[in-house]
Simulated scan of single mutants.
Amino acid sequence: MTAPVLVAVAHGSRDPRSSTTVRALVDLVRERAPGTDVRPAFLDFDHPGLTDVLAGLGDRPAVVVPLLLGSAYHARVDIPAIVAATRPDVPVADVLGPDPALLDVAAERLGELGLTPGDPGLGIVLAATGSTHAAANEVVHRLAARWPGTLAGFATATPGIGHAVARLRAQGAERIAVASWFLAPGRLLDRVHEQAGAPVAEALGAHPAIADLVITRYRRALTSHLLRAA
């Protein structure tokens, strides 16, 4: 039996660096899941769109895996609506976050700056996009709490990056660094750089641990779907 298609759907961006990173991650997933047809899709700005990818599959079985770090509007509304309108038989996997593997990758990216959570005198901002969905922001706050001397900050929500940096300095941090809770580079991460006034780690990117997490989400969604259908 041929494995269902893995449709990896990202938000999409006007910044080509984002698309390049997403496609590199999809290539890595293909390498680590031999025999599985893995296809990229986007919600906005980039092509192919999720609707077109799903429609192009005909009646082939598939699983949609959101390449999203949080369960905000795109995960809760946009993707389910597109799937329901195009291929309602296709299961949608959980978002990637807040799996501990992602936080490990964020720490690894921070390590590329020569810094480690818990370093004496180091204050860290765990920087994320931010959402109008408070529960999605709270997840980032909980993740930040796992590292000593770390606060969450958001590019498009409160507390902003500058506010988080100021709080860390008020708490006695001698040095500040920013860890990225972004899958790919783009305009929002550029905004973090502008607001931080401190070293900023690279986006999580096309990392083997993230590719493996995509595959895990795919397999879990497929198993749950098959059990429900049995």
Rank of each mutant, 00 (worst) to 15 (best):
N137S: 08
E138I: 00
V139S: 02
V139A: 08
V139W: 07
V140R: 01
V140M: 06
H141V: 09
H141P: 05
H141E: 14
H141Y: 07
R142P: 02
R142K: 08
R142Q: 08
L143Y: 03
L143S: 01
L143V: 03
A144G: 03
A144H: 03
A145V: 02
R146P: 01
R146T: 02
R146C: 02
R146E: 08
W147F: 00
T150W: 03
T150P: 04
T150R: 00
T150M: 04
L151S: 02
L151Q: 10
A152F: 04
A152G: 05
A152I: 10
A152M: 08
A152Y: 11
G153K: 09
G153Q: 10
G153S: 06
G153N: 05
F154K: 11
F154H: 12
F154W: 10
A155G: 15
A155I: 06
T156L: 14
T156W: 11
T156N: 14
A157I: 12
T158G: 07
T158Y: 11
T158N: 15
T158I: 13
T158M: 10
T158D: 15
P159T: 08
P159A: 06
P159S: 00
G160A: 00
G160H: 04
G160R: 13
I161P: 07
I161H: 11
I161M: 09
G162P: 14
A164Y: 10
A164E: 15
A164M: 09
V165N: 06
A166Y: 05
A166I: 07
R167A: 12
R167T: 11
R167P: 14
R167K: 14
R167Y: 02
R167E: 15
L168G: 11
R169P: 15
R169C: 00
R169H: 06
R169G: 09
A170F: 02
A170M: 13
A170C: 08
